[in-house]
């Protein structure tokens, strides 16, 4: 599959899921852009095999992007994260793990299960790192300088 085409598929699929998750129509293009960013970083760091490093890098990129948007648009970062992370999230892995165990293939189930947990852990760690970075360099102040509205207590 053409890599550039993959970015388009990821963006459109994410837009579909964003609407399904009742994201406001104005924010859908932003979420889709986040998916392009995440999927791009994921494939560039060799993600098609589902390596933890690729998951971590993609999640950190999506996380920083979402924190920046959250400060600019004054919505929870989670709103953008939940959508933009969907293409890299190991949903398929969870499914294949359980399918292998339902079929009685214990070895395959264990292997897939471990890889799935690794991917999910890497994504969660990437998001945790990006939110820590956002707090350290105070993206909110940066956003204010970029034209966001005035700073509010962080809830």
């Amino acid at each position: 599959m053409n890599a550039a085409l993959g970015l388009v598929w990821a963006a459109v699929a994410t837009a579909g899921f964003a609407v399904l998750f009742e994201l406001h129509l104005r924010e859908v293009p932003l979420a889709a852009t986040g998916a392009i960013l995440g999927w791009g970083v994921y494939t560039l760091s060799g993600g098609e095999g589902g390596t933890a490093v690729a998951c971590f890098a993609a999640a950190a990129a999506v996380g920083v992007y979402a924190e920046l948007l959250a400060a600019l648009r004054r919505r929870p970062a989670a709103v953008y994260i939940v959508c933009a992370i969907i293409p890299i999230v190991p949903g398929g892995g969870m499914y294949y793990t359980m399918l292998a165990s339902v079929r009685g293939d214990l070895a395959k189930s264990l292997e897939l299960g471990f890889r799935t947990l690794q991917a999910a852990g890497a994504i969660a760690a990437g998001l945790a790192v990006s939110s820590a970075i956002a707090r350290l360099i105070s993206l909110e102040r940066l956003a204010r300088r970029l034209g966001g509205r005035r700073e509010k207590p962080r809830i």
């Binding site: 992370i85 999230v89 949903g91 398929g92 799935t116 947990l117 999910a120 998001l127």
Partner: peptide, 8 residues
């Protein structure tokens, strides 16, 4: 599939 759920 609960991909987002396991990450959360």
């Amino acid at each position: 599939v609960p991909g987002v759920a396991i990450t959360n």
